[in-house]
Design a protein around this nucleic acid. Structure first.
Length: 469
RNA sequence: GUCCCCAUCGUCUAGCCUGGCCCAGGACACCGGCCUUUCACGCCGGCGACGCGGGUUCGAAUCCCGCUGGGGACGCCA
C-alpha cells in the first residue's frame, strides 16, 4: 500500500474477450486491488474498420461475469479525438512529426524488398526531410524519431531491456483519414489518465521502445511496465480458436464458475508457494509481480475443469443455485418463469455437487428432480425393470408407505431387510428402484433420491414402474 | 531475415535473485489399489523434469558464455 497505483485494461473491441485478455485484465485488477489503487477500463476502438458495438457489449458482459469491476470508464478512444489531434499538432509544431505522402502500396513494396534482402522492413524515411507540401495529396503524420542511441525499457518482470534505436522507424501517428494509431493513443491516454503501471501482454514488449520515445517527445513521464507472458495452446502455438473455446463467455455457457476461471487464470503465471486454491481475497492479499513468471504458459482445460469441480463442491448450495438457475433454463430443464426460488433449487445440489464437472452437467443430472414425468432410458428400462424386479418394488412400496420416520436411516434399514428376505444383493434392489425413480442407471445415492423426491412422488413413480412391468 | 523475450515432470508450478537444506517439492492429467447401491467423490500408492555444451566453484537446477528450441515484434491492427 505504498504509492497510489493506477492501472488499466485496454481491450480492442474487434471480437469477443478471450482467455488471454481476461488474464491480462485479472493481473491488472489484482495489482490494483492489492495496492488499493484504481483500475480503469478503456476500449481501444481506434480501428473503425473492425471495432463493433457487439464486441464492446460482450467485453463488458465478460468482465461483469468474472467480477472484474473497474473504477473508471469504460472510456472509448473514439470519444477522445480532440486530445489526440491536439497532441499531434503539438509534435508537428515542435518539429517532432512530419507529413508523409508515401502510399500504402509503395510502403508495402519497400517492405517486401527489404525483407527479401534480409533487412529489417522498416520505413526508409523518404518524407522525413521533405520541405514541400503536396496540397491535395493524401498524407499521414509520422513521428520523427531519434536516429541513434538506445532505449532502455525498465520492465518490472524482466529488468532492463535494451533496444537499439536503429531497429525502430518513424511510426505513423495519424492516418490519412485523420484518426490516430494505436502506439500514439496508448501513450497519450496512459499519460493523460495518469496510469502508473502498464501491465499488458508480452506481445507489446517490442512496441514499448517506440512508446517510450513518444513519452519523451511529449514530455510525459514514462509509467512502469510489466509485460506478462502469453498463453499458448497445447501445441505451444499462440492460443487461438483452433485450440477450442477461447472466449470468456463460452465458458459461462459451458457451465464454468467465474471463481474457477479466475483461480485458474491467476495460477497461470502467478504462484504463492504450493497453494492452488485461492479465494479472491487471498489472491488480492498475496498478489505481487515478484511471484509472476515470465515464461509462456500452456492453457490446460483439464486443470480448469478440476478447479470448476472444486468450486462446484464447495460453493454453498444456495449461492450455487443462483448460478445454476439460468443454466437450468438454458438447458431446458426448467421453463423460464418456473417460479422456483434459490432455496428450492438448492435442494438438489448436495446430492449432485460431487458428480458434476460443470453447471450444465449438473442441470442435466437434476432432470429427475425437476421433471415430474420420468424420462426412461430404454436400455435401463429393459435391463432392470423386469419381472424379477416386480416383487422387490412391491416390497419397497409396501415398506415406504407406512414408514413413520421417513429418513435415510429408516429407508436403509428397509432396503437391507428386503435384501435379506429375498436373498439378493443391494445392487439388485437399488438399480431397479433407481431406474423407476430417475429413468436411468446413474444417479445420486438411492436413499438421497428417495428423500429428495419425497414419499408421495417416490410412491407415484414406483407404482408407475411396477404397473408398467 | 532482423530485433526482443523465454527455457524445471505431458501440463501449471516451487526452488534460481541471496550457489550446498534438492540424487529437485506440490498440483492437474495418467496408471494401480481401497471404499461402494449406480455414477461419481474421497483416500492411499505409482510413473514422471532441471534442453544441450562449455566455463566459474570444494560444490550449480541455481552464476557466466555459446548452441538449440519455443514464442513475440517488425501494419495507415491493437
Amino acid at each position: 500500500m505504498s504509492d497510489p497505483v493506477k492501472v488499466r485494461f485496454a481491450p480492442s473491441p474487434t471480437g469477443f474477450l478471450h482467455i488471454g485478455g481476461v488474464r491480462t485484465a485479472l493481473f491488472n485488477w489484482l495489482f490494483a486491488r492489492h495496492h488499493g489503487g484504481q483500475f480503469v477500463l478503456r476500449i481501444e476502438d481506434t480501428d473503425h474498420e473492425r471495432s463493433t458495438e457487439e464486441s464492446i457489449t460482450e467485453i463488458l458482459e465478460s468482465m461483469k461475469w468474472l467480477g472484474l469491476d473497474w473504477d473508471e470508464g469504460p472510456y472509448r478512444q473514439t470519444e477522445r479525438q480532440e486530445i489526440y489531434t491536439q497532441k499531434v499538432d503539438q509534435l508537428f509544431k515542435e518539429g517532432k512529426a512530419y507529413r508523409c505522402y508515401c502510399t500504402p502500396e509503395e510502403l508495402d513494396r519497400k517492405r517486401n524488398e527489404a525483407q527479401k534482402k534480409g533487412l529489417k522492413p522498416k520505413y526508409d524515411g523518404t518524407c522525413r526531410e521533405r520541405t514541400d507540401q503536396l496540397e491535395g495529396s493524401p498524407s499521414v503524420i509520422r513521428f520523427k524519431a531519434p536516429l541513434e542511441g538506445s532505449v532502455v525499457v525498465d520492465d518490472l518482470l524482466r529488468g532492463k531491456v535494451v533496444f537499439d534505436i536503429e531497429e525502430l522507424d518513424d511510426l505513423i501517428l495519424q492516418r490519412t483519414d485523420g484518426s490516430p494509431t494505436y502506439n500514439f493513443v496508448v501513450v497519450v491516454d496512459d499519460a493523460d489518465m495518469g496510469i502508473t503501471h502498464v501491465v499488458r501482454g508480452d506481445d507489446h514488449l517490442s512496441n514499448t521502445p517506440r512508446q517510450c520515445l513518444l513519452y519523451d517527445a511529449l514530455n510525459f513521464t514514462r509509467p512502469k511496465f510489466a509485460h506478462i507472458s502469453m498463453i499458448l495452446g497445447q501445441d505451444k502455438a499462440r492460443l487461438s480458436k483452433r485450440h477450442g473455446a477461447t472466449s470468456a463467455l463460452a465458458y459461462r455457457e459451458m457451465g464454468y464458475l467465474p471463481a474457477a476461471m479466475i483461480n485458474y487464470l491467476a495460477r497461470l503465471g502467478w504462484s504463492h508457494g504450493d497453494q492452488e486454491i485461492f479465494s479472491r481475497e487471498e489472491m488480492i492479499q498475496h498478489f505481487s509481480f515478484d511471484s509472476v513468471n515470465t515464461s509462456a504458459a500452456v492453457f490446460d482445460p483439464d486443470k480448469l475443469s478440476w478447479l470448476n469441480e472444486h468450486y462446484i463442491k464447495t460453493t454453498p448450495p444456495e449461492e450455487l443455485a443462483r448460478q445454476l438457475e439460468p443454466v437450468l433454463v438454458s438447458t431446458g430443464v426448467l421453463q423460464s418463469g418456473h417460479g422456483l426460488d434459490a432455496s428450492e433449487i438448492a435442494k438438489v445440489i448436495p446430492s449432485l455437487n460431487e458428480r458434476a464437472k460443470t453447471l450444465v452437467e449438473m442441470a442435466e443430472k437434476s432432470k429427475f428432480y425437476f421433471n415430474k414425468e420420468v424420462e426412461f432410458d430404454e436400455k435401463a428400462k429393459t435391463k432392470f425393470l423386469t419381472a424379477n424386479a416386480r416383487p422387490l418394488l412391491e416390497k419397497v412400496i409396501a415398506g415406504l408407505s407406512p414408514m413413520e420416520n421417513f429418513s435415510a436411516e429408516e429407508i436403509e434399514t428397509l432396503f437391507k431387510k428386503i435384501v435379506e428376505e429375498e436373498g439378493t444383493k443391494l445392487g439388485k434392489l437399488a438399480q431397479p428402484v433407481r431406474v423407476a425413480l430417475t429413468g436411468t442407471t446413474v444417479s445420486p445415492g438411492i436413499y438421497d433420491v428417495i428423500l429428495l423426491l419425497g414419499r408421495e412422488q417416490t410412491l407415484v413413480r414406483l407404482n408407475n414402474a411396477f404397473q408398467a412391468i
